[in-house]
Computed example of a mutant assay.
Amino acid sequence: MKRFPTHIVAVFGVVENANREVLLLKHRHRDIWMFPGGQVEVGENLIEALVREAREESGMEIEPGHLFCITSNTCTYPGYDGYDTVPSKVIMGFACTYKSGDFGESDETTEHLWVARDRVLDYVKMPDFIDKYKAYLEFDGTVRYLSYVTKPNYKVDLETTL
């Protein structure tokens, strides 16, 4: 049986273009709209991981900027692909700028949209993504920290600033 590390470290980015529209990606298997991001691989730093994930999921090049939130998904749940348990996750959110490239489908994504900032929540429906996007919109120079569980139901256990 394979085991994940104690925590999974992940990153995501809210990517804006020159028109201040936000990039959303449609997940291939879950029928949700999401921000680019994913797990940090061995030997990668956070910025490298975010740039790689955006490129893999969208075909686009981005420029990560400031950190606006850190979240902890503290629930665990049954694993997959030979893993026994999916552990807690620590996820960093970065404000990003679109640099170049055209959308291309990936193993994880099928579509993309550039959405006006005030319309993003018309598409993003996962509660943790909603809270992360609100932290982005409300960024005032302090980093928001959220600790939550997603299973069996979404619940924020702690919300503070750092």
Rank of each mutant, 00 (worst) to 15 (best):
D157G: 13
V42K: 05
G93A: 05
G104N: 10
F139W: 04
Y123N: 00
P78Y: 07
G82S: 08
N17W: 11
E159D: 08
E41K: 09
V51A: 04
S72W: 10
V143A: 06
V15Y: 07
P5L: 13
G101A: 04
N17A: 14
L113E: 11
P64M: 10
F4L: 06
F94T: 01
V15G: 00
K151P: 02
P78L: 07
P5V: 12
E61A: 15
G59K: 05
T71C: 15
K89N: 04
L146V: 00
T76A: 12
I47H: 04
F12R: 01
A95P: 02
D107K: 13
T160F: 07
M92E: 05
S88C: 08
V120W: 03
T85A: 01
C96Q: 01
A18V: 12
V22T: 10
P152K: 07
S72P: 00
P64Q: 08
A135S: 14
E21W: 08
H27F: 14
V51S: 01
K132W: 06
E159Y: 09
F4Y: 11
E48D: 11
W33L: 01
F35P: 00
Y123I: 12
D128Y: 13
P87F: 09
L50Y: 07
A10C: 10
L67G: 06
I70C: 05
L162R: 09
E138F: 07
I62M: 05
D128G: 02
R119L: 09
Y145F: 15
T110R: 04
I70V: 12
E159N: 01
T142C: 10
Y154Q: 03
T160G: 05
